[in-house]
Every structure is written in structure tokens, then in C-alpha cells.
Design a protein around this nucleic acid. Structure first.
Lengths: 230, 230
DNA sequence: ATACGATCAAATATCACAGATAACATCAAG
DNA sequence: CTTGATGTTATCTGTGATATTTGATCGTAT
């Protein structure tokens, strides 16, 4: 600690801020699948110029949260049944793998922390499922794997999933119940150090959230979610 | 010849080309772990301006192939035993998973194609292991999974692995023999549609390539690989 | 219906600025 | 006078902004 207790100046890195803002918007499901974005619009909304937006966008493209269209515009990946299944498989595979590693390093303190996370009361005016708490719960768990390589990949999957969240979020109440079940099961499995049970709970959690996107509901939902490209 | 073995680019889709050129350099192990890069130098070597280089670099950072240092410069990730183990685990996990999916869609034509890939004679003047053929072999296999989500993640892992290739590559002959064994075993397992055998062969392949980076050899190798930061 | 041109957005190049680094000069102590 | 430390400056870096170029799309006129 320094002598005068002067905090280091958090010199604003615009590019990071822009990225963080867009990422947040994604994880809150603010972007509708298929929506078309343009750099100038984003720059204006964020009160900055094109350059930082461009770099943030480039990163989002690398992470699969946005795609380049042939006509040089940007698009939120359109809803696509096949892609959704693909994403589900990827999430189940990667997240159960990391969960297995995390459980090698699991300790009582972390389990307690997980419990406090899910007991945090949802914000007063919050109506939907508690997305932030759910994110925290999963990643507090995964961070115990200490995998600097895999955690960013899982973040990228969640980001891609974020666009679909826009659709899932309509099933707020059902989803909230499922989450609660999952959190309870997971804590129990962790306390018993029962890997198979923990992985099974996680698998069920991921799959159930995707189930709200079943094919028969797709048409109705895409209409709700706003504009559809092409 | 310039430092990084990056060929100059002709004017068209610059951003993609810059990215492709740097990516190629990585997968050929041209970048030494710990090496420091700067945008102006890269732009000059590539015969273009900073802007496209910045975007390509931004993408490589997002993929973990480069890292931002606190002092705002760019660096090839330094060698790190822990990170290496992490990367190995990630590769084994993700690639065996995708292999499993690919085998659900496997057909004779693809197996034949794989066989022609490994039978392609190495370029006349080529001395090291046939990196391109090996890459082709793996990804032709993985592409059969039709996973638009997971393939880019695996590409990212290979890119991170690329920096270590710079070190592994010194064991050229041993590596070449291992690769040959692997390709043979894999084809055989695919023909029998034996998933466990195929996964075991893949696991062995990945792990053996990392074994050349065992701790006792580390010191010697980092010296060879060029400059060391800090 | 096709072709041409107007219009708009993205890609690139260039410019201006601020942080970081390192070489250099200056000064003090032995 | 030498040596070590400290303050200064020159230079190099990435970042953000802006001007210019390129390419695509859509409307209109033939």
C-alpha cells in the first residue's frame, strides 16, 4: 500500500468500456436474434466514435456473439434450431468438463459462497429470472477449476446463448423455478462431493433452459422478438 | 525475409488477410513465446496501415493467441507450465467430444479423404513435421461434427497451442513418428467405427505432443526459442 | 426489365495525443 | 575525481478521432 492511500487512477479505457456495455446488453438478452447493427449507430448511442466501437465489435465477432454479413454489416446471429442444438451440446460438454475439474478443488468456503449467492434476494422491481445471480452461481463454480483457457471459452458460449435469452426470458416464471431446483441440487451434490450427481444436475439445468426454445414455440417467439432478417 | 515469416499482402479484404497471415504464422510456430510485437512494425511488414492490423490483433487477443500487457504492448503468451497443462486438458476434452459427434456422421468417403491427406508427400524441402497435413487431418475429422459453435473454439485452442509449437517443433523427427502412428490408429478405429479406440488414439496424440514440453526440458528450450521477457 | 447513378455505410489511411520507457544529463556524496 | 542516484527529455507505443476511399444497395429513368 502506498503512503498516502491514494488510489490508482482508473484511466478510462474506452474500448473496454464499450465492450463491457455491449456484453452486458447481450447477457441481458437486449439484442434480438437477427437484428442488424451498424457501427455509427452504436458509436452514437455510446457517445464515442467509431474506432473503439469497431474494436469491441471485432472482439464480439471473434467470440461468436455477432456475425459479419456478406454486405459488410453486422448481425446478431439469427435464431436457428440447428445452431441452438449445437450450442446446447457445447455448453453441456464444456461446462460438465469444467465442473469436474472444479470439484477436484472444491472446499466448504466456496460452497458457502454459492449458497449466499442464491440466497441474495432478487432486486425489488426485478420481475424476470435473476440472471445475474444465476451467472454468478455458475461462474463461481467454474472458476474453481482455475482454467484460464476454458473459462473464456465458456464465457463466449454464454454470450452466444445471450441472444437466445431474449426469447427464453419470456418464460420467466417457469425458468425461475427450474433455476431454484438446480441450485438446490447442485449444492447438495457438492456437499456430498458426488460428481455424477453434480454433472447430472448441471446437464438438466442447461437442457431445461433450452427446452423453452423447442421447435413448436419458435415461430411465435421470433415474431415477438422483433424484426426478422432477410 | 521478415522476422515473422509473414508474407506481404495484396490489396483486397485486408482485415481478413492480415488476420489469416498472422494466424498462419502462429500455426507454423513462427512466434516465440514471450515475444513482444508492435502494431507499426506489423503494419510495415504486411505492407498496410495500422487499422487493419489493429483489428486482426484485437481478434487474436480475443482468441487468446496474444495478450495485452499492463504497459499496453502486445505479447505472445510466455511459456508457462500451468497454462500448458490447462491447454492440454482443454484440447483433449474438446477434441474428443467433437470427435464423438463427428463419428456419428462418419462415412467412407471422409475416411478415404483422410487417408489421402496423410499420404500427401511432404514438400520436397520440408524438414520438420508436416504441420499443415496434420492440421488438415484433424480438422477434416472435426468438421464432420458440423458444429459451427465448437469448431471455432478448437481453432482458438490450436492457435494458443501454436506459440508452444515454436518449442515443440525442435523435436521434429520424434514428432513426425508419433503423428504417423496416430494417423494410422485413427483411420483404423474409424473404419471399425470404434469410438473408444478413436478417442484413445486422439488423446494419446495430443498428450504426446505436449510431452516434448516436459518440465525438465523447459529451461533449455526457452533459451533456444529466442528472447525472453522480463 | 435492365442499367446507370445517387446515397449511405464500412474499410482504410492518416493525424493528434497521452502513457510508458529508456537514454542521458545533472548533481551529490564518498 | 569517480560513482551512484535522481530528474529530464527524446522517442516509441497504443488509442481515439477524422478524412478519404471503396463497395454495396436501392431508386429511377430509359
Amino acid at each position: 500500500m502506498n503512503t498516502f492511500g491514494i488510489a490508482k487512477i482508473d484511466q478510462s479505457k474506452l474500448r473496454e468500456d464499450v465492450y463491457a456495455a455491449m456484453r452486458d446488453a447481450f447477457t441481458r438478452g437486449e439484442f434480438a436474434p437477427g437484428a442488424v447493427l451498424n457501427l455509427r449507430g452504436l458509436a452514437e448511442q455510446l457517445g464515442t466514435s467509431m474506432t473503439p466501437v469497431r474494436e469491441a465489435v471485432r472482439r464480439l465477432v471473434a467470440e461468436g456473439a455477432l456475425i459479419d454479413t456478406p454486405s459488410r454489416t453486422l448481425q446478431v446471429p439469427p435464431f436457428d434450431q440447428e445452431r441452438m442444438l449445437d450450442l446446447k451440446r457445447a455448453r453441456v460438454g464444456m461446462e460438465t468438463m469444467v465442473l469436474g475439474i472444479a470439484m477436484e478443488n472444491m472446499d466448504a468456503a466456496t460452497i458457502d459462497l454459492l449458497e449466499t449467492i442464491i440466497q441474495t434476494p432478487p432486486d425489488a422491481e426485478q420481475t424476470g429470472p435473476n440472471l445475474k445471480a444465476n451467472h454468478d452461481f455458475h461462474f463461481t463454480l467454474y472458476r474453481k477449476s482455475n482454467s484460464a483457457v476454458m473459462l473464456p471459452l465458456i464465457e463466449a458460449l454464454w454470450l452466444q446463448y445471450g441472444a437466445y435469452l431474449n426469447l427464453i426470458i419470456r418464460h420467466e416464471n417457469a425458468l425461475r423455478v427450474d433455476e431454484h431446483e438446480f441450485h438446490k441440487d447442485m449444492i447438495r451434490a457438492l456437499r456430498r462431493n458426488d460428481r455424477d450427481a453434480a454433472k447430472a444436475a448441471l446437464k438438466t439445468d442447461i437442457e431445461s433452459s433450452f427446452n423453452y426454445l423447442a421447435a413448436e414455440k419458435l415461430d411465435k417467439l421470433t415474431v415477438i422478438s422483433g424484426r426478422n432478417p432477410e
